[in-house]
Design a protein around this nucleic acid. Structure first.
Lengths: 138, 138
DNA sequence: CGCGATACCTGTAATCATTACAGGTTCCAA
DNA sequence: TTGGAACCTGTAATGATTACAGGTATCGCG
């Protein structure tokens, strides 16, 4: 039986976050000590680990909730889980594309900056005039 | 003189967002009609355009505030502006690296999924067991 | 000039995922 | 038994919007 601090250390998840997950119903209410302190079992640690890992992988809380629901109903077809993972992967890929375009644009902006005064600063110019951008970001 | 809706359409920025920018002091208070409605001039459109473009490029509100301050004090050395752009570019590059690692991991997860039932779903397995990951994401 | 639809006004609360804080209680080791 | 760390609850803050409620202005059309 873990206290919340031990669970926190075991899962690298802040104490406040654990209590938050309980409040939003993502973590089940654990047992309590006589003095009303939370006492966790291994199943809590596993579930929290799953949640934290999902969060690290960028899944939203609601996506993780869905994944956990899918897990709880064991032996059902995993196509739904797979589809979620694919959707998420595609979203990440889109984000990478957008950020790459952005990085290139920032590079161009920086190259335009001749090192003079603000009146001739390429960075300011580009920010003020969308037409100086090479890509559509919107 | 634009009403707020016209400015909204001209800059592709929601009406609520324009009022929000005014509230936080990012946009100056515009003139008002007799009936107390906001009336904007071109300089507002330009400034809002600058702000929106900065946001699209991923600059935070406070970064944009700094940039605008630097701009307002014209003819001062643009090294500070340049440095901000560089810092931001580097942050974007870091984010791209992290997301690329993440995308690769999601790909591996998806490939592990044999298409069977949830009990054998690679996606669930990886989420539940950090050791199945190839990279450190934390 | 009057009417009605649309656009506008203010102020407040919600969103998302946490984190921080205040003020009080419990636990555990020395 | 005592002292300090860890715990408790409840509330508010973060960042950048967005949404809503309840009321007022504007504008084109007849």
């Amino acid at each position: 039986m873990y206290a919340i601090g031990a669970l926190s250390r075991a899962t690298d998840c802040k104490v406040e976050t654990i209590r938050y997950y309980e409040k939003i119903g993502l973590m089940p209410e654990p047992a309590r000590s006589d003095g009303n302190q939370r006492r966790y079992a291994d199943r809590h640690r596993e579930r929290l680990h799953f949640i934290r890992h999902g969060r690290e992988l960028g899944f939203s809380i609601s996506a993780i909730r869905e994944l956990l629901d899918l897990c709880d109903r064991k032996h059902r077809d995993c196509a739904a889980v797979d589809a979620m993972a694919r959707r998420h992967r595609d979203a990440v890929a889109d984000r990478i594309r957008a950020l790459t375009a952005l990085r290139d644009e920032l590079d161009r902006m920086i190259r335009r900056c001749a090192g003079g005064d603000v009146a001739h600063c390429g960075v300011i110019e580009v920010l003020g005039d969308h037409r100086l951008c090479r890509h559509d970001h919107g």
